[in-house]
Nucleic acid binder design. Structure first.
Lengths: 218, 218
DNA sequence: ATGTGTGAATGGATTCACAGCG
DNA sequence: CGCTGTGAATCCATTCACACAT
C-alpha cells in the first residue's frame, strides 16, 4: 500500500512484519528468562513457541551478530538488544482521545503503564467525564485541551477511540500537535502525512477477516 | 510463519493481507454508496481513500470480472460481491471470554451487533458479574458454562479478553467446543490446531510496533 | 557435534504496462 | 478515449543449505 513506501523514505528501518515478530520474540524471551537458563538456541525457541528457527536467526541478523555458534543466544543480551532495536529504552507518553468504554479499558489495561509506555491522559467531549479519573488514576480532560496537554505532557503517541465521524479530525489535531505515531480504533482509514506511522486496530475489520476464514473452513 | 501455510492446506483461499484489503474496500464503498453515484472507477476510489488503483483491480479480479471498461465498477454490485466473498451473508454468533473492561467495551461496541455479527454472551469467573447484563443487554454467564453456551447458542467465533495466564486454556476449550475463529487480545501467542484461524489483537504488541517507528522517525 | 549467520533459491505480493472491451 | 483485467517484471519475504565458529 502506498504509505508503506512513503514511510520508508523517512525511516530506513526494517519492515512492519519483521517488527511485529521482534516484539513477539521479546515477549517469548521474557517468558523463558524467568526460568533461569542463560542461553537458548533458535531451534529451542521456535519449538517452544511455534515459531520458525530460520526466520528468528535471519530477523536477528539484521541488527548484528550476537549468537554463539554451537550454543545459542544469550537470553539477557538479546532481550536488551531487542528492547533497544524496538526503541523500548525510552518511555513514551501516550494520550487516548475518547473516554468511552474502549478508551477507558485501554487506559487501565493491565501492565501497560509499566516499562515503556505511560498513558498520561484521556480526552473526551463529555463534560460529565471531564475532571474525573479512571480506576487506575488516569485523568480525563476536555477534548478542547488536546493540543495543550500533548505539549505540556510531552506526548509522542496518540490513540483514537472516538466515534468514526470524529476520528479524522482528531488525527489531524494529533499530527498538528507533533505526535508521530497513531493507533486508530475507529472504523475508518485516517489520512496522515507520510512521516506519521499509523496502526489500524479496528475491531470490526478484524472480525470480518475472521468471518472470511470461518466461512471457508466449514 | 508456519501456521499460515497450515491453514492454506485446509482453506484454499486468498491470503490474509488481501482479505484485510477487501474488508477495507467494502467499508470505503459503503461510504461512497451513500452519495448516490452508481459507478466508481478504481482510480477514483483510490484517490478518495489513499489506496492503490492497480491493487484494487487485481484484488477484485481474483473473484471474477465485474467492472465495466471505460466506466468503472457498479457500487451496489461490488458491495454485494465483497460481502459474499468475505462470508458476510451469514450472521456469526460470537462469545467473549472475560468480562473485564475490555470484554465489556467490545461487547457494547457501537454497530457491531448489526449485520453480520452478534455477540451473544460474555463469560467470566467473577460471580458478582455472573447473571448481570451489559448496557446493551448482553448476558454474562459463568466461565464454567462456556462449552454449554457455545453449543446452545450456536457460536462460531470466540474472543479472548481474559488475563494472560488463562488465555491458552480458554483457547483450548473454544477449539474443543467447535469454534473455528479466535480473536485473541491477551499478550500471548496461543496455540491451536492448524484448521483454526486466530487473529492476535494484542494491544501492547501494537504499541511496541508503534514505538519502533516513533523512535526512528525523530 | 552443534547452532549461527548468510548467500542462493524459491515463493508471494506489488507494480508496471498494455491489449482489448465498452 | 477511458478504464478494466491481466500477463510480465519487479520487489520483498521466506526457506533452504551449508560454510564456519565454538
Amino acid at each position: 500500500m502506498r504509505e508503506d513506501k512513503e514511510i520508508k523514505k523517512h525511516c530506513p528501518c526494517v519492515s512492519e512484519i519483521i517488527t511485529r515478530r521482534l516484539s513477539l520474540y521479546l515477549r517469548c524471551l521474557l517468558m523463558v528468562n524467568r526460568e533461569g537458563d542463560e542461553y537458548i538456541s533458535s531451534r529451542e525457541l521456535a519449538k517452544r513457541f511455534h515459531l520458525n528457527a530460520d526466520q528468528i536467526r535471519k530477523d536477528l541478523s539484521y541488527f548484528g551478530t550476537f549468537g554463539k555458534r554451537g550454543v545459542g543466544y544469550n537470553i539477557e543480551a538479546i532481550v536488551v538488544k531487542l528492547k533497544e532495536v524496538l526503541g523500548l529504552t525510552h518511555v513514551y507518553n501516550v494520550v487516548i482521545a475518547g473516554a468511552g468504554n474502549l478508551g477507558i479499558a485501554l487506559a487501565d489495561y493491565p501492565r501497560i503503564n509499566r516499562d515503556s509506555f505511560k498513558i498520561v491522559a484521556l480526552l473526551d467531549r463529555d463534560n460529565r467525564k471531564v475532571g474525573t479519573k479512571t480506576k487506575t488514576g488516569i485523568p480525563i480532560y476536555h477534548i478542547s485541551e488536546l493540543e495543550e496537554k500533548i505539549e505540556e505532557l510531552n506526548v509522542r503517541m496518540g490513540i483514537i477511540t472516538v466515534p468514526v465521524d470524529a476520528a479524522q479530525n482528531i488525527a489531524d489535531r494529533f499530527v498538528e500537535s507533533g505526535i508521530r505515531g497513531i493507533m486508530n480504533f475507529a472504523p475508518v482509514r485516517i489520512q496522515v502525512p507520510p512521516y506519521i506511522k499509523t496502526i489500524s486496530a479496528d475491531f470490526k475489520s478484524q472480525l470480518e477477516v475472521l468471518a472470511y476464514y470461518v466461512s471457508k473452513l466449514m
